[in-house]
């Protein structure tokens, strides 16, 4: 399971990087979203093994629990990535309103002398 997820993470990273490198602003933002998905999954695999124990709720009275630390970190990361995505989206939206383009090449700030 861990290996499968890790390979999936690699695939997600590839897709994310490819999207980030494109010229379209929206694709770049989607790239960051995919990248954070990848990061969340990666964090998950870094714990004490997947599916080894019950959910980290002590009320379950289980013998063992899955690793709670990555879960806490991911929870934080999810909310932050939401904030970043929202901000980037609005930034793109404002940029388009102001400049009339979402092409990053056209948005270049200065010309070669």
């Amino acid at each position: 399971m861990e290996t499968l997820i890790t390979v999936l993470v690699g695939l997600l990273v590839t897709v994310a990087v490819y999207l980030l490198l494109s010229r379209n602003l929206i694709r770049v933002i989607l790239g960051t979203a995919v990248l954070s998905h990848a990061a969340h999954l990666l964090l998950m695999t870094m714990g004490n093994g997947l599916k080894k124990g019950s959910a980290p709720l002590l009320g379950e009275n289980a013998n063992s629990y899955v690793d709670a630390l990555p879960q806490a970190l991911i929870l934080t990361a999810i909310v932050i990535s939401f904030a970043v995505t929202a901000f980037l989206l609005v930034l793109a939206y404002r940029t388009y309103k102001k400049t009339g383009t979402d092409d990053l090449h056209a948005l270049r700030g200065f010309n070669d002398e």
Binding site: L12, T14, T45, M46
Partner: peptide, 19 residues
């Protein structure tokens, strides 16, 4: 594509090595 693929591969290899 090459950059993306290498980045993805390295992440996988690194993660597997850590695990």
């Amino acid at each position: 594509g090459i950059i993306a693929l290498s980045a993805g591969t390295i992440v996988t290899v690194l993660a597997l090595a850590v695990q």
